[in-house]
């Protein structure tokens, strides 16, 4: 079963279909990588909890987080990363990427 890295770019208000992450991920290893407005997920309690429920690992782009002043909102469930680390996740650590 391939591991899957889901890429989210949209704000949690705009993207409300985390069920698709759960349904497509199933029992496989599920990573979620948050870019741009998706970095709002850690700041919104209900949506954050939903995301934690469907993902085994959650990565957040540090530059997008800092641009929005939200680094202090990131809990221990989230790993703040940079672009070189994102490349390693995509190229070496997960088998597939799926943008939702």
């Amino acid at each position: 079963m391939p591991s899957k890295l889901f890429i989210l770019l949209k704000s949690p208000h705009e993207y409300r279909d985390l069920d698709a992450v759960a349904a497509l991920g199933g029992d496989d290893r599920v990573g979620v990588l948050l870019f741009e407005d998706a970095t709002l997920f850690p700041a919104l309690k209900d949506r954050r909890d939903e995301l934690i429920d469907v993902a085994d690992e959650i990565y957040v782009m540090g530059d997008d987080l800092d641009a929005r002043g939200l680094r202090s909102k990131v809990g221990k469930e989230f790993q703040v990363i940079d672009y070189p680390r994102a490349v390693d996740l995509i190229m070496d650590e997960f088998d597939q990427t799926i943008t939702l």
């Binding site: 391939p2 597939q96 799926i98 943008t99 939702l100």
Partner: peptide, 17 residues
């Protein structure tokens, strides 16, 4: 079904959305 959908995703190397 969703179970079959997951198998189909797993059977492909690349996914574009």
């Amino acid at each position: 079904s969703w179970d079959e959908a997951r198998e189909i995703v797993n059977a492909h190397q690349l996914v574009t959305t």
